[in-house]
């Protein structure tokens, strides 16, 4: 599938230190906004038990799974706390004219 930039939402719709779930087709993603106004995107389901990370908790640059407290660094996708072991896939993000876009391949 060719990569395409998909508009997610207005940048200010995501609070600092928080996230928004974004569904595209039959796939689900999460877009994060850090306290420093950086934006990142990952797959939306935890690699441990496929729980929606959108219900999880953002701690700095880490997303904690709401079900088992497994953690990922959402900048790199690296699993940083058990029971999460497999990395989370990350996706490029850009903000243009106040809108957040994710490049989904």
């Amino acid at each position: 599938m060719a990569s395409e930039w998909i508009r997610v939402c207005a940048a200010d719709e995501i609070e600092p230190d928080d996230l928004r779930r974004f569904d595209h087709g039959d796939r689900t993603f999460v877009v994060y906004r850090t306290a420093e106004d950086e934006y990142f995107a990952t797959d939306g389901l935890c690699t441990h038990e496929k729980v929606h990370l959108a219900d999880g908790f953002v701690i700095g640059n880490v997303i904690e799974c709401p079900k088992h407290n497994g953690c990922f660094d959402f900048r790199t996708g690296a699993a940083t706390r058990r029971p999460a072991r497999e990395p989370l896939r990350t996706w490029p993000v850009k903000v243009e004219e106040g809108q957040v876009f994710v490049q989904i391949g």
Binding site: R7, R21, D23, A54
Partner: peptide, 8 residues
């Protein structure tokens, strides 16, 4: 709900 969902 605990989380809002945005869809393309």
């Amino acid at each position: 709900a605990a989380s809002a969902v945005l869809s393309s």
